[in-house]
């Protein structure tokens, strides 16, 4: 058995800033994970469909536009509706401190803002993905 952690990195909505997402993608690759990158302007439906086909352990969402309360939770709601319980959802980007507890309540397991060390994200994933 040689399990590799698979993770989908996606940018929902209309925000076109993907530098952070690409840096995180690279760091996860360097940590030995398989990273599926789908680019900009994804809908929740596209993200969930891709996550199913690619059988990922983690979905990482990145957003800098401020619409995270809607767009991040659209993804977790759709996962719930499809009865998918074994995928961890993480968020990154410009997320105000006061929104983090609300996001966690909606099923976003971890939120990583600017200045997060990439090792922190790797550690979080390694610890939380079922082996």
């Amino acid at each position: 058995m040689n399990k590799k952690i698979r993770i989908l990195i996606a940018k929902p909505g209309l925000d076109g800033h993907d530098r952070g997402a690409k840096i995180v993608a690279r760091s996860l690759r360097n940590a030995g994970m398989e990273v599926i990158y789908t680019g900009l302007h994804q809908t929740a439906e596209m993200i969930v469909e891709t996550a199913i086909q690619e059988d990922v352990d983690v979905i990482g969402l990145s957003l800098l536009s401020g619409a995270h309360m809607t767009l991040f939770t659209d993804v977790t709601k759709l996962l719930k509706k499809k009865k998918i319980e074994d995928i961890i959802v993480l968020g990154g980007g410009i997320i105000p401190e006061q929104d983090i507890p609300k996001l966690k309540k909606e099923g976003i397991s971890g939120v990583f803002g600017p200045g997060t060390r990439t090792e922190e994200i790797v550690e979080f994933i390694n610890k939380n993905v079922k082996k």
Binding site: A31, Y37, T38, T50
Partner: peptide, 11 residues
């Protein structure tokens, strides 16, 4: 080196 991969064809 790392055993990881960046899979970007879906873009």
């Amino acid at each position: 080196f790392s055993g990881g991969a960046l899979l970007g064809d879906r873009v």
